[in-house]
Amino acid sequence: MKVKSLAALLAAATSVLSLAACGHHRGPAPGQLTLGMVTDVGGLGDRSFNDSAYRGLLMSKARLGAYIQVLQSRSAADYQPNLTALTNLHFGMVYAIGFLMGLDLDQVAKQHPQQRYAIVDAVIDDPNVVSITFREQDGSFLAGALAAMVSKTHHIAFLGGQDIPLIEKFQAGYIAGAREIDPTIKVDVKYAGSFDDVAAGKEIANLLFGDGADIIYTAAGKVGLGAIDAVKSHDHDYIIGVDSDQDALAPGRVLTSMVKKVDVAVFDVAKSLRDGKPMHGHVVFGLKDGAIGLTDFKYTKQDIGAANLARLHAIQAAIVSGKIVPPSTLKALAAFRPVPL
């Protein structure tokens, strides 16, 4: 009886298998450029740098004909298995998105010296890892300058995710840029202690607006989305978004976004691989690479005014030329003096 029914099941299983065997094959073609990516816990849909990195992958697919694959991480415990899984499939390049993955990537990279990796926002000292970082302080300097120009209360704010060196770059650049315009401006600084607590973002933004700040620069991942939600009910206040173009999330209320074009960096790394001259070591992307910058003020041009925009262009040119060097640490900020243009 038992054996008979088992045999029947087995037969059913085999027929299902053979019937379905005509499905199409979806793996990479031989010789195709293959790119794998592991998101951090923010995952796809964070409207921030995971999404931005994914755009770089899509760009590589469209322009370089790459085969791409993304594994999302639900927790930090997924980083190692995900990185290893893509490694085991021998992708040409495996991207680790976010400095959160730094130590995990270091470990995996040492186990697989033949595999190429790229990591965004962290510097890993392994010969097979390309470390991609950005001069966030440059863009943040522009954001701070713009905020100081537009603020009516001479009081602006900074909302960080966690108090870590990466976010310090945003903070130092932002404050320096504001002082470049208005040396006496008041800048409140708050940290949410997280990159994904949306509710905390909304709460802290309301608090900062209540204290008199009329512009908040968020450098806090998903926490920033909460702040953008909060500004929708403040008609005279602004948020400055971060990483991706967040202007459309609350049209007119997001003054601009400090865009960190991870997509550009991801694409450039992929292209260098395709061209047979793969990047290696520590690669820094900044204003002059077009990988950092503000948006085009689609909804807020009127509020800012042409004069301010011209002034902003001048500052940008001064940074690119090296006349202004935005500080990347609080220590450097203390030594920063506004540069007369």
Binding site: L9, A12, A13, V16, L17, A20, A21, C22, G23, H24, H25, R26
Partner: peptide, 15 residues
């Protein structure tokens, strides 16, 4: 059997 079905649903041949 169940995994084969899941693969077919996902559009991949079980093989």
């Amino acid at each position: 059997v169940l995994m084969s079905l899941a693969m077919i649903v996902a559009g991949t041949s079980p093989l």
